[in-house]
C-alpha cells in the first residue's frame, strides 16, 4: 500500500470518529466542532517542539575536527614519503 494511502486511511478513520461524535453528541456539539482546529494546532505544536528540542540537543563534535586535522597531517606525511604528490606542483603549501 502506498504510504499516502496509509495516511489518508488514518485521516478518514479519525474523521469518521469525529462525525460519529457529532452525531451522538456525547460531548456538547460546540466542543466537537472545535476538535479539528485543536488537532491541527497540536500537530503544529508537535512539529515546532520536535524541531526546537532537536535544535537544542543537536549533537556537535568540535573535537572530531581537531582529530581529523591530526589524521590529515599523518596521512600527508605518509603519502609524501611514498612519493604520492597530493599537493599540485604549482601550489605552495604553507
Amino acid at each position: 500500500m502506498k504510504h499516502i494511502v496509509k495516511i489518508m486511511t488514518l485521516l478518514v478513520a479519525v474523521s469518521a470518529l469525529w462525525v460519529g461524535l457529532l452525531q451522538t453528541s456525547i460531548v456538547p456539539q460546540s466542543h466537537t466542532w472545535l476538535l479539528p482546529i485543536y488537532f491541527v494546532v497540536s500537530l503544529g505544536c508537535y512539529g515546532l517542539l520536535m524541531v526546537g528540542v532537536g535544535l537544542m540537543q543537536f549533537p556537535t563534535c568540535p573535537q572530531e575536527a581537531l582529530l581529523l586535522q591530526q589524521d590529515i597531517v599523518e596521512a600527508k606525511q605518509y603519502l609524501k614519503q611514498k612519493g604520492v604528490d597530493v599537493i599540485p606542483t604549482d601550489v605552495v603549501d604553507a
Partner: peptide, 11 residues
Amino acid sequence: TRYVKDGGVHG
C-alpha cells in the same frame, strides 16, 4: 546516523 548519541556534526 549523525543524530544520535556519539554521533554529531561540526561546522
